[in-house]
Write a protein that binds this DNA or RNA. Sequence first.
DNA 1: AATTATGACGCT
DNA 2: TAGCGTCATA
Length: 594
Amino acid sequence: MNIDHRVIALIDMDCFYVQVEQRLQPEFLGKPCGVSQYYTWKGGGLIAVNYEARDFGVKRGMRGEQAKELCPDFHIFHVQEVNGKANLNRYRDASADVFRVLNANFKLVEKASIDEAYIDLTEDVQKLKDKKLQLTINDFSTTHLAGFTTKTEDERIEILNKWLNDCQLDDEKRNYDLLLGAYLIEQIRKKIKDQTGFFCSAGIARNKILAKLCCGFNKPKKQTIFTQSDIDHIFDKTPVQKIQGLGGKAGERVVELFQVEYIGQLRKYSLDMLQTSMGEKDGCWLFNLIRGIETTPVSNRNLYKSISASKNFPGKTCLDTIDKIRTWCYNLAEDVFNRLEKDRAENKRRAKLLTVICTLATNETITRSCPINEYSIDRFANDTLRILKQYNKNSLTSNIYTPVIHHIGISAGKFLDNINTKSIADLFSKQTTKIETITSTENIINCQEEEEEEEDNNTEENILEKPTTTTLPIQGDFFRKFQKFDEQTKIQLKSENKTTTSSSSITSFFSRYTSNENILNCSPNKIDDHYITCSKCHKSILIWNMPEHEDFHYAHELQIEENKTNSIIKSSKTIKRKNTNQTLDSFINKKSKM
DNA sequence: AATTATGACGCT
DNA sequence: TAGCGTCATA
């Protein structure tokens, strides 16, 4: 029986923004503090509160003044303001500090938010097994077991010790993996503290939902293990809304439709009943989830998919003139521009789509997009302004804008990778690296409503068996999408000049996850022994650098072509050609390094 | 006038 | 795809 034997951790920084401020002003360490967002009305609205202050009943969302009433010694840090708007760069930079540590130590890290990371430890745990470590309670100084509320340290040690011995002597329940995962997380949390100064908490479990849930069981500065055998009795007391994804309307619907309070109470409902009410996909997800099965993969993504700046203009602060709107378009554009430039320098990519979001007094939210051809504050601001003007019902000659605006956001997204200059960027706009889809079979109910890769349908591993009954927890087949490159795709990248191919192959989920080589191959950045000989220059090139290397050849050939027709090109284009030369120079410099 | 700014992702 | 809605968290 193939079941999910991953080891997943969720690391969550404790009251992150407060810690960031305290790192800058250590005199406030140990004191009740909070961070409030940038207006000063009633002391501002708190977006982060440390644990010392929580003891006084201070909560996120409270007014600063209210916090002061509850806790006279409460200290308020204020989010930095630039151009009259909150600027969160300080926390983004601190976040990068944390992720540098994580990425240096683990292959598969997913940035889930500014202060949260999922880590797939499956492979690390397998490697650790070979070392046959004899672990003692001292290796788990901040570890707790989910389902046990231990009041004293002695109690924690007693319970953990027993469990530790159990799974080292006899791993009948397959908990040893989780133990090793917890061991690794104890270490990385120590490393994060040493290298960034920040404390964090963590959850260790078989999937992301469980890891996320149990991370909150013991906070701050602690970690919790959620074993599969704890699922039933913990879920019996877990309010539906505590499950990630069910904190909003979907959770409300579950509570309403099934008349349940706790997520475990859903066990008495058949797959059909869940699907009838929640839809095929969500119903299936729920059915598996409450049986401890949740297969969403940890994706190794470190970079933002969008970079945005936004601001609310509530009530009287609304924007009712073109002048005000223009000013804010520029303020927001500048913020986005600065962050995009930094992103371009660090990550060699460019956003290609600008999206403007605004909320009008009519209470309608409008989203409109336009292409990004160059990074420029003026361009961003004017594009935004042009879009916003389309909804002005007033005379074009008037400065008054109707209906008034209560929110503006500018977001840049649709990034293209491996792009160094604008001119080359446009040449290679076709070159995208598609995400590969891998499907597999497994003894879990199939959550996928349809097959997407037609060409794969006739292979043996992809044959679907629809569930025949809805009363067994494990039945049918299961499709799984994997956001990973496989070796085939990379080879094709090499051999097919210019045109990047997205190939899909079907690989058994189980074999991929249990084979060491396959797992290794899934992490592009951290392997340094995969060289390929370039068919054009016969140099040995790191496989991950092939797309860029091919850019060089293509640009080079392009310039040769261009030089042939030089005499025809008008003088006004000379500048452009100069740019091209610079680009080529940069490519050549890179080449000489290779 | 007041939970604000910012992300990711799903649905149609 | 574009545009809108949902969910989440500092």
